[in-house]
Amino acid sequence: MDQERIEIRWHGRGGQGAITAAKIVAHAAFVSGYKGVVMAPTFGTERRGAPVFTSLKISKNKIYDLSPIETPDMVIVLDHTLLEEVNVTAGLKKGGWVIINTHKPARDYHFEGMRIAVSDVTTLAREAGLPQGVVNSGIIGAFSKASGLVDIDILVKAVEEEFRDKKPELNSASARRVYDRTEIGEVR
């Protein structure tokens, strides 16, 4: 991905921490030399458990357009049950990434012309010592492994910084664990 601007859409449920995950990636991307990072949550009314999405734009230059993403290069899904409620690949560019937190293998998913990466973040995060359901630090490992956009070491530092008061080492361990156990599927 060497285009001028990379657009990532994060799908989660209200309260799941998709905004925090996007914020961590924004920090790490900025540290890695991307001068333009803009993260915009769903504008309006969020409710716990309801589907929400967050837009993250990354560019080498300052970003002036703050409008929501329409044609993402990548979508990251924090909860695979969202696939039944939301068209997560809406507008996704051909050859774009679909990264899902799921216990199912990559071959179980069929997104025409898209690349797929899966990891059982929910289980791996718990194995790393985090409470049940904390997936927003772990999913960052899958993002790094699949996209290669931002180095995992820089991301892990950003995770520890964001969670500095909330078990930073368990959150970064979760990200690393997911990074090591992300399955990249075949392009179909």
Binding site: A26, F30, M39, A40, P41, F43, G44, L66
Partner: peptide, 10 residues
């Protein structure tokens, strides 16, 4: 509002 108030940027 939102466009700047709730959007994150450096």
């Amino acid at each position: 509002g939102y466009l700047l108030s709730h959007t994150y940027m450096p």
